[in-house]
């Protein structure tokens, strides 16, 4: 290895730079900085109320943030920084265009109950991108096949189990061909016996190199699927690193006690 030529490291896809947010007097995000490279799977872990879901929702601007800047592929999320230092909210059109490139899967699936499974997948590509139904349908059916639900394509969400609905929600996000997928506690609302089927789908997406940011309480899953893990507490990023470093050699006292409590709870 030569010291003279540095390895080519592409610019990260997502850059979170000293992001801060307050709900009234409560600071929910404090100077959080993180990067996610294309193909990375970043898991955000930490106790409830640590700000990890808020941070994830800032990445597609479902939440506003007041300080710092998030960029995706160099484009700032939600706000533009004017030359004189002031910040201005981008137009609805600009914000929507960015969200169209960022898929999101929610804790409560949020499928559209008046549309059948296939329509849930095709509605956004057809309406937002103006794509023709034919090719979108092909893509949607392939994705349903992939999550094992092709036979349910004409069912309505209310006719599916929670695990099935969440797999449809993942397929719906992917039909938009996003460059980044955000997953917000996607197994927290599921019965324990349905968690596995959803995690299996996500694991296979990670193997395909889909860039993901995952908020999760499933530690074993986070450790297995992630390329990096970030631990948050009280709105701060406390420690981040490889899964091995975070789970086996945590530095910070806060993370150690979190891991201890987790292990005690799971008798690991």
């Amino acid at each position: 290895m030569s010291d003279l030529i540095p390895p080519a490291t592409p610019a990260p896809l997502v850059v979170i730079d000293r992001v801060g947010k307050s709900f009234g007097p409560v600071e929910v995000l404090k100077e959080v900085s993180l990067t996610v490279a294309a193909g990375d799977v970043l898991s955000l872990i930490g106790p409830s109320g640590s700000g990890k879901t808020t941070l994830l929702r800032c990445v597609n601007y479902l939440e506003t943030y007041e300080r710092g800047l998030i960029t995706i592929a160099g484009e700032s999320v939600g706000i533009e920084q004017l030359p004189d230092g002031r910040r201005r909210r981008k137009s609805d059109r600009q914000i929507a265009a960015l969200r169209a490139q960022v898929g999101m899967v929610f804790q409560h699936y949020n499928l559209f109950p008046h549309l059948d499974v296939l329509e849930n997948l095709t509605v956004a590509p057809c309406r937002v991108h103006g794509e023709a139904l034919g090719p979108v349908r092909e893509r949607a059916l392939a994705l349903l096949e992939r999550v094992g639900l092709a036979d349910k394509r004409h069912r309505y969400p209310s006719e599916l189990s929670g695990g099935q609905q969440q797999r449809v929600a993942i397929a719906r996000a992917l039909t938009m061909q996003p460059r980044l997928l955000l997953l917000d506690e996607v197994t927290s609302a599921l019965d324990p016996e349905l968690v596995g089927e959803v995690l299996d789908v996500i694991t296979s997406l990670a193997a395909d190199g889909i860039t993901m940011m995952i908020v999760t309480h499933e530690m074993a899953f986070a450790r297995e699927v992630s390329t990096s893990v970030a631990f948050m507490a009280e709105g701060r990023l406390i420690e981040n690193g490889t899964p091995e470093a975070i789970f086996e050699a945590p530095h910070h006292e806060r993370l150690r006690s979190f891991m201890q409590r987790y292990r005690a709870g799971n008798r690991l």
């Binding site: 479902l62 609805d92 929507a96 499928l111 956004a124």
Partner: peptide, 10 residues
């Protein structure tokens, strides 16, 4: 929220 997250305008 789900509609907005898919890139729809309000």
């Amino acid at each position: 929220e789900a509609a907005l997250a898919l890139g729809m305008m309000p």
